[in-house]
Computed example of a mutant assay.
Amino acid sequence: MRSLIGRQAPKFKTAAVLNGTEIVQDFSLDQYLGKKDVIFFFYPMDFTFVCPTELHAFQDKIDEFEKRGVAVVGCSVDSEQSHWAWLNTPKNQGGIQGVKYPLVADFSKEISEKFGVLAGKYAPDAEGNWVCEGAPVAYRGLFLIDKKGVVRHCVINDLPLGRSVDEAIRVVDALQHFEEFGEVCPANWSKGKTALKDTHEGVANYLSEQK
C-alpha cells in the first residue's frame, strides 16, 4: 500500500467511547481540523496483554499531549461495547479503567484497512467465501496528523512490539518546532536542542558543532 505520509488522512465516521463512559455513534477526526494535531494509534485487540500497557502509557502522558494542543485517539477492531467493558475493568484486573481519551470502534475493519495497518487480508476461497488470511486485527500503527488533516509521521510495529510514547511526543515537538521556526530537526533531536536551517550551509555548520 502507498504511504500516507504527506497525504490527507483517510476519512471515517464510526462509534467510539469518550471519557471512558460515553458511547457516541458518529465520531470523526474531522472535529480536530484547524484546531489540534492528532496522534491516532491502532492496537490489536481489547483484553490482551501488551495493549493495556500502551493505552495506560498514553494516558499517563496525556497532559504532555494536551499542553502541546494534541488530541490522542486510539482504535482497534473491537466494538464500542467491548471498549466500554474494558474501560470499566480495573487496572489490576487487566483493564484500562482511567483511560479518558477516545477509543474508536473499527468492528468492520475498514478504518484499519484504509490506514494500511490491517494484519490480515480478506480474499475469496475456492467456494467463493471471503476468508481472512492472517490475523484479522490491526498492527500497532501510529499516525501524527496535523491541523490540516495531513499525515506527517507514521510508525507501524508488528503485534508483539510495544511503542514508545516518549518518541511520539518527540515527533510532535519536532513538527511543531518546524512549523514555528522553519528549522528542520536532525537525528536524535529533542525539544530544547539545536535544530538547523534547511540549507547545505546550515547542515555543515550543525555537523561541525557536533564534533
Results as ranks from 00 to 15, higher is better:
Y43P: 05
T89R: 12
P124K: 07
A138G: 00
L29Q: 02
R2Y: 11
N129L: 12
F115D: 12
E209A: 15
A16P: 07
C185P: 00
F58Q: 04
I96T: 11
Q93D: 14
V73N: 00
K147W: 02
H200N: 13
Y101L: 07
V99R: 04
D173T: 05
A126V: 14
Q25Y: 15
P186N: 10
D37K: 06
Y139I: 00
K121N: 00
D78A: 04
F115A: 07
E110W: 00
C51S: 10
A195H: 14
V171T: 03
A126S: 11
C154I: 07
V72F: 04
E22C: 05
A204N: 01
R68T: 11
Q97H: 15
E80R: 10
K148V: 04
K193Q: 15
T21E: 11
E179A: 14
T14L: 09
P52A: 05
C185E: 02
F65R: 01
S79R: 01
G162S: 06
G6C: 05
C185G: 03
F12D: 11
K193F: 09
L18G: 02
L55K: 06
E54T: 08
N92C: 01
K35I: 08
E180T: 14
K191M: 12
L118G: 00
C75E: 12
E183T: 09
A85Y: 09
K193W: 12
L144N: 07
V38Q: 01
V171Q: 03
